[in-house]
Simulated assay, not measured.
Amino acid sequence: MADKTVAIIGNPNSGKTALFNVLTGLNQKVSNYPGVTVEQVIGKANLGVEQVEILDLPGTYSLVPESHDERIVSQEFANWALGNNRPDCIISVVDSTNLKRNLYLTSQFLDLGIPVIVALNMMDLARQKSIEIDHEVLNQHLGAFSVIPISARYHEGIDDLKSSLMNALESTSVIDSKLMVPEPVRDAVLPIQDWYKTHFGFADSLALSLAIRVTTSERVEGFESPNSALIETARSQLSSIGFPAETLDATLRYHWLDQIVPASNIPIEKRSRSERIDEILTHKWMG
C-alpha cells in the first residue's frame, strides 16, 4: 500500500479537520497552495503496518467557487479528473444532522470514478436530535464505496473507517455515478457530454456531470469550455421544456438526494434550502 494518497473533503463545519487530526495525530505538514495564502495541510495516517498520505482540503459547499478556498477545491477536482496528482481514495465528511445539504458536494465527487468513503460525522449530535440514518440503505442508493457512521470528536467509528479505507485502497472496482437525470435533460446536454468525452477522454458519468455543470454556469473551473454555441443550444432546449438552466445542476442533485435521504431523518428546520427550489423539483419531468 506504499505511496497511497487519501483526500478529505467536506463542507465548512462538517468536522473534516477534526477527522484529519484523529487520523494523523501530530504527523502533519502545513504549507500554502501555490500563489495563494490558503493553507495546504498534509499528514500521515497509520493503517495497520502501512502509512498513507492524507490531504485535508479547504471546506466548500460545492464546486462552483465563490472564494479562494472553494476555487482551490474546484481546481483540485479538475486536476484529478485530468489525471494529475489523483488520490487513491476520497473521504467525504458530512454532518449527519444536515445530511442532504452535505451530500450535495459528495455527489459531485462521486462523478470522478475515485472510491469515495462517506464519513457520517457527528453521529453523537444526530442521536441527541433523534435522527436515525440507515447507512447501508443510504449507500445502496448513493453508490459510494462505503458509508461509515462516525463521531470524530469522540473517536467513534474510527476503526471501522480505517478498515473501510484499507479496503478502498486495495480495490480495483469502479462504481458509476447513480445521479438520476431525466431523458429530456440528457438529450439536451448530449452534444456537450460528447464534447467532453472526445476532447478529454472522460467516462460517460464524468462527461455528463461536466455537461450539466457547464450548461448551468457556462464555465467549469479548471477545464477548457466547449463552444458557446453548444451551451446556448442546450440552455435553449432546456428552457423549451421548462428547465431553468441556471439552476439545473442544483435541481437535479437535490431532487436525487430527496429520493435517497429519507425526509424523516432531517429535522424540519434543515429543509429551507430545498424548499427554495420546490417549484423546480415538482416539475413534470422530475415529479
Rank of each mutant, 00 (worst) to 15 (best):
N121Y: 03
M122R: 10
D124W: 03
D124Q: 04
L125A: 13
L125P: 01
L125G: 02
L125E: 14
A126S: 13
A126T: 06
A126K: 02
R127G: 01
Q128P: 00
I131P: 00
I131G: 00
I131M: 02
I133M: 08
D134T: 06
E136A: 13
V137G: 08
L138A: 05
L138K: 03
L138Y: 07
N139A: 03
N139E: 07
N139G: 03
Q140G: 14
Q140H: 08
Q140Y: 02
G143V: 00
G143S: 00
G143I: 00
A144I: 01
A144D: 02
A144H: 00
F145M: 09
F145W: 11
F145I: 08
I150F: 02
A152S: 11
Y154W: 11
H155A: 10
E156C: 01
E156A: 02
G157H: 09
G157P: 10
D159I: 11
K162P: 04
S163W: 04
S164Y: 04
S164H: 08
A168G: 11
L169I: 12
S173L: 06
S173F: 04
S177T: 14
L179P: 06
P182C: 11
E183I: 14
V185Y: 05
V185G: 05
A188H: 07
A188D: 08
A188S: 15
P191K: 10
I192T: 04
Q193Y: 02
Q193D: 04
D194Q: 15
W195N: 01
Y196F: 15
H199C: 06
H199M: 12
G201W: 05
F202D: 06
D204L: 12
S205Q: 13
L206V: 09
L208Q: 15
S209P: 03
I212Y: 06
T215G: 01
T215Q: 01
T215Y: 01
T215V: 04
E218Q: 15
G222Q: 09
